[in-house]
Design a protein around this nucleic acid. Structure first.
Lengths: 124, 124
DNA sequence: CGCACCTTGACAAAGTTTTGGTAACGTTGC
DNA sequence: GCAACGTTACCAAAACTTTGTCAAGGTGCG
């Protein structure tokens, strides 16, 4: 049998089995199937899964966003529409502070940020 | 004064004032400001806002995704990383059913879908 | 056969985003 | 000066996503 089962793949990639199914469903990974329908994870898929974790962690975005990127590259009409809109976009590059991009609204963590700030001051 | 105020802009675009501020914060729209700091919506911005609604409605995605698209086009490093990952992607185009893309998990609406189904049958 | 694994589908807890509201304070115009 | 609007900041309801878990049933292998 050519490939690991989902549980083994989970063990070596750090994703949970649930997430592995989710990722497949998101269209981000294609898998072979055994005759009985078992997902088969080959070396290539395992590599991709590991890379995926780093990518998401380091560039700070999620599966949803990556899924949209994939959708963009696959659907020319969508790409065209999005580009058409963005082309009439802000001239000034990066008028938004870098961190604003990470998650638009820091609002979400007001309290936490305040707390972190306190901590920082204590650390400093 | 060159441009509508936020409330007027809301009235002619169909967005709520709250959302207009949100959109600006998301980096999707740049606005002029009056000396006192009031947002000024010119014809161009109004047009963009209207287009935006159609775009989101018709292509079925949200501000977050559009924001990511913008982030992609502005941040070459991000774009490179994403492309590198996607390039080793599924050969078969569109193996996912079209509707699967809209929102990956229909799961969310199980009950609603069931209800809708019932309705459909009654309609039919 | 029996045990441990797989499949899909559903439900739901947890976490985020989206959207609205409200408070405190400045501006515009009559 | 007052009414009607603007600003930001914060809280919170609603909606959605992410992730876990469980049930019902199929597969693999000793």
């Amino acid at each position: 049998m050519d490939g690991l089962t989902i549980q083994e793949a989970a063990a070596t990639t750090g994703w949970s089995p649930r997430m592995l199914r989710y990722i497949e469903r998101a269209g981000l990974l294609e898998l072979g199937r055994s005759p009985a329908g078992y997902r088969l994870y080959g070396p290539e898929q395992l590599q991709r899964l590991r890379t995926l974790r780093q990518l998401l962690a380091r560039m700070n975005f999620g599966l949803a966003e990556l899924g949209f990127a994939l959708r963009l590259r696959r659907d020319p009409e969508l790409r065209a529409a999005v580009n058409r809109w963005l082309d009439a976009a802000p001239e000034r590059p990066a008028h938004v502070a870098p961190d604003d991009w990470l998650r638009w609204e820091q609002q979400k963590h007001q309290a936490l940020i305040a707390a972190a700030h306190t901590t920082e001051m204590e650390i400093a």
